[in-house]
Amino acid sequence: MKHLLLAATLSLTASAALACETVTVGDLSVEHGWSKVTIGAGRPGVFYVSISNSGATDDALVGISTPAAGMPMLHETVVKDGVASMPHAMSIPVPAGQSVQLSPGGYHGMLMGLTAALKEGDSFPVTLSFEKAGEVTVNVEVLSLRAEGPDCADAGQ
């Protein structure tokens, strides 16, 4: 499965279920990788994903890379006194036995320097680097700007 996903690059015709596939590395499973349409390539894109850790050891997401963007970064949206900002997140904890979401209004991948505008239905790979488990690549599905997440039939794992 991992090899299949690694082989898939910037395809323009993603199957609707791409974001629903689960990839694993060590004790971590990664699924529901999705992004939103951008207006042009000048504006940053966004990357959301779910990670769960079924092991007994804490891990952490420490970086992302993708051919779709020159400067991908981990961010966290923080609202303090009603004011939203999104500082760089050096690392996102994935504690043992827990799951973590990069999701709207919280942690997210910020895709700066897009190589092309992201269009609905596109897909692109993102490689996640974990402190302990190493690297894993997921396919990310581009949904509409209004989307709240991929529509997966299974209720997650």
Partner: peptide, 16 residues
Amino acid sequence: FTWCPDVCPTTLSDIS
């Protein structure tokens, strides 16, 4: 602002 990838589209989706 339209360069905002997280908070703004999320809020506008909610408003919609």
